[in-house]
Design a protein around this nucleic acid. Structure first.
Lengths: 212, 212
DNA sequence: GTGGGGGCTATACGTGGGTATAGTAAGCTC
DNA sequence: GAGCTTACTATACCCACGTATAGCCCCCAC
C-alpha cells in the first residue's frame, strides 16, 4: 500500500499556489518570521493578490490549516482502511511535515491531534483484547501519549535526523527511522514489575520527579 | 529523591530578573511575538537596560538557552546519579517547560537533546545485556527516538493535557501522565513477529508509507 | 460595443518594535 | 575630588511588514 497525495482540482490556480507557498514559508520560518511578500514572491504573484484572495495573514494561515486537515484526514481514512499499516509519522507528511510540527507546537492543529488519538484509541481497544492482564490506564490516556510519541518525530525532526545521522526525510533515513521504531515498539522499555513498583510509589505519593 | 531547582547566586540581580522574564515571555509567546518592551516591563526595568545587559534580542535568547542548559544539565547529573528514577519529562521542567518546547521545535537546544540521547544510550547499553536476542538497531538510534518520545510531552503539552483531560502540570495530571507512561513503557505495542515481518518488507523495499 | 466583475499589479500608509544615543546617578580607586 | 566604570533611564530613529487604495486587463453577457 502506498498512500499518494492526490492534488486538488483547484491546485493549479494562483490561489492554490499562494496557499502552498504559505504552507512552505510558515513551515520553514514560522508564522511571524514568514512575510506575505516572501510568500507572494514564491508563488510568483503580487503582494496585493495574496490579500485579495485571503484577506489577511491570519486568514491565510487558517486556510493553510484547513487544507492540511483535509489532506491528513484523507490519509487517515486510507490508513484506517488498511489494518496493517506501519506507523511512520514523518515520511508520508512530505512537504507538510514542518508546517505540521509548527502548527502542533503553536497549539493549532488540535483537531488533527484528536483525530490521531481517536484512531489510536480504537486500535488499542482491539489490541487490549489479547492482553494478559487488564490495562491500569484507560485507552484514551494511553492513546494520547502514543499519539504524542508518534508525532514527536515530525515535531523534533531536525534533532531526530541529527541523532540518527541521516535525514529522516530521505529514503535511507526513512528506513533507519522505521527500523528503530520497530525495535522500540516491539520491546518494552521497562519490566511490568518495575512499573508496578513505581505505580505503588505514586499511590503512596512518593513518585520521584526526576526527568529523563 | 526529589530534584530541586536551586536558584543561582546571581538570581537576585536585575540581569537575572530580565533573563527570567525573557524565559517566560519567549516560552509563552514565542521568540517573535515576545517584545523586549514586554520583557523589560515584567522584569521591572527599562527598555534600555535589557539592551545594556544583553546587547540584542537574539543575544538575550542565547543567554536564556545557556541558562536553561545549565539548569537542565544539573538535573541530568542528579538523574544520572540516581539509577531508578522515573522518566517524567514534564513536571520537573517546571517554569521552563514551555520555553524548552519552543526551543526544541525552533531547532535551538540541540545540546540538550543530544545530552538526553547520550544518557539514554548508556542506559540502553546496560539494558541490552539482559535482552534475549541482540537488538537489530544500534543504541544511539534507539536512544534518539526514545529521547524524542520523552520530550514529546513537553513539546505537545497542550494537546497531551487536553487528551488526558487534566493539566499535566498539576499534581493529578502528573500522576495520570506517569501512569500512562508506565503502562506504555512496560507493554510492547507490537509483537516481535509483526516487527520482523515489517522489517523484512523494508529490506525488500516494500515498506508501507502509511502514517498513523 | 459597452458595462461589469473578478484576477491581478503598483503604490502608498501607518506603526510596532528592535536598535541606537545621550545622559544621570552611584560606587570605586588613587 | 577627579576620573573611571557600571547600572540604569528617557528619548529618538528607522525600517520591515501588515494593511489599505486605486486602477488595469481580460473575459463574458447582452
Amino acid at each position: 500500500m502506498r498512500v499518494t497525495t492526490v492534488p486538488d482540482p483547484e491546485d493549479l490556480t494562483a490561489r492554490a499556489r499562494i496557499r502552498d507557498a504559505a504552507l512552505w514559508h510558515f513551515g520553514e520560518y514560522g508564522f511571524e518570521r514568514a512575510t506575505i511578500r516572501g510568500i507572494a514572491e514564491t508563488a510568483g504573484v503580487s503582494l496585493g493578490l495574496v490579500r485579495h484572495h485571503f484577506g489577511s495573514k491570519q486568514a491565510l494561515r487558517e486556510a493553510c490549516d484547513a487544507h492540511l486537515i483535509k489532506v491528513i484526514r484523507r490519509m487517515h481514512e486510507q490508513v484506517a482502511s488498511a489494518p496493517h499499516g506501519v506507523p511512520n509519522p514523518v515520511a508520508v507528511m512530505g512537504p507538510y511535515q514542518r508546517y505540521l510540527g509548527r502548527a502542533l507546537t503553536e497549539g493549532w492543529a488540535a483537531p488533527l491531534f484528536d483525530d490521531m488519538v481517536g484512531i489510536g484509541e480504537r486500535w488499542l481497544a482491539e489490541a487490549d483484547k489479547s492482553r494478559p492482564e487488564p490495562p491500569t490506564v484507560d485507552a484514551r490516556a494511553r492513546s494520547t501519549l502514543i499519539a504524542a510519541m508518534a508525532l514527536s518525530v515530525a515535531v523534533l525532526e531536525p534533532h531526530v535526523s541529527r541523532g540518527l545521522g541521516v535525514d529522516v526525510r530521505s529514503p535511507e533515513g526513512e528506513a533507519t527511522l522505521l527500523r528503530a521504531i520497530l525495535d522500540i515498539y516491539s520491546h518494552p522499555l521497562m519490566s511490568p514489575e518495575d512499573a508496578a513498583a513505581i505505580r505503588a510509589a505514586i499511590d503512596r505519593g512518593q513518585a520521584t520527579r526526576a526527568g529523563g
